[in-house]
Amino acid sequence: MRNRMLFILLLGVYLFYACDSETTANFPTEIIQDSRVSDSIFEILLDDAKLICMDYYTNEEMEEIEEIEFKEYHYAQILAALQFVYVDSVSTASLDIRKYDVHALCHEQLRKSYITVDTSSQNILSWKEYGFSDQLKLDLLIDDYDLQLDSLGKDRYAVHASTGINQEVLALELKQFPFIYEAQSANCIGDGSQIELAYFSPDFIHLIYSYGWGDCPSGCINRHYWELGIYGSGAIELLSESGKELP
């Protein structure tokens, strides 16, 4: 009897630490694609993570993100959490988030800038016609981020990047060239679904997902919220659900 009680006690201690270890595992600090996430969805979640990261660092007045390309340590943990939510098949909240296709607002902010240029510049003409400008520093940017020009009329062009980058920093770099008079990143226009980062630590992230509907180009009339706690182990906890009833 005594041995049986000791066995039960030891089993309880083991289960306690096993369960605790499941929720205290740290998120990866390098970019990892979950095998259950397709390439196309991964690219969307990657942009989500970068937008969430950029918004969080700006609003919290934390470390400035001063480079064109985001560092993995800025957003790898967020990306891992987003993938955990996307592949989760247990939580009703995760199922609804996939059903209503909730993502971070304004992916265009990572892909596009606008410039005003000297239309007589051979550098601009070459960039538009051949994909390089004959200006070494600019050509390095064009090559690194596959920057493509799209004429908007007169002296205005849209600059498209093939990957999600910090367009605000890119615009600052572009303005340094004498034949580029003005440069600015794309603005976020309209309203819609959103994902916000409320808190994060190495092993826990608090995300607020929201789905908006009803005249969203002008500002969504209705909105539903899910607050999720995501652990580094992949466990997901619904912290709260609020807002309008889902349509």
Rank of each mutant, 00 (worst) to 15 (best):
F16T: 07
L239K: 13
E30M: 10
E241L: 09
G192S: 06
R2V: 07
E60A: 15
L136R: 15
A171D: 03
R4N: 05
Y56Q: 04
Y225C: 08
E108F: 02
I195W: 06
I208L: 14
D155I: 06
V85F: 10
Q83H: 07
Y199P: 00
D134Q: 13
D55M: 02
E108L: 09
L46S: 06
P178D: 14
R36T: 05
S210N: 14
I52F: 12
S218F: 12
S240G: 10
M1E: 08
G190S: 02
V169C: 04
R223L: 11
A81M: 09
C106P: 02
A186S: 15
G131P: 06
G243D: 05
F84N: 12
K175P: 00
L51A: 07
P217L: 07
F179R: 10
T119S: 12
V117D: 02
L149N: 01
K175R: 14
L10C: 13
Q77N: 13
S21K: 05
S40P: 00
C216G: 08
P247D: 04
R156F: 13
Y181K: 12
D134H: 11
S201K: 06
R36M: 11
D39H: 12
F7T: 09
D118W: 01
L147R: 01
D48N: 13
S210C: 10
E237C: 02
Q167C: 12
T24Y: 05
Q184W: 13
G243S: 08
S193G: 10
S121P: 04
Y157T: 09
Y211M: 05
Y199A: 10
I44D: 10
Q109P: 00
H160N: 12
K50A: 03
D96Y: 14
N187C: 01
Q194W: 11
W127C: 10
E108Y: 06
Q167G: 04
Y211N: 14
M1Q: 07
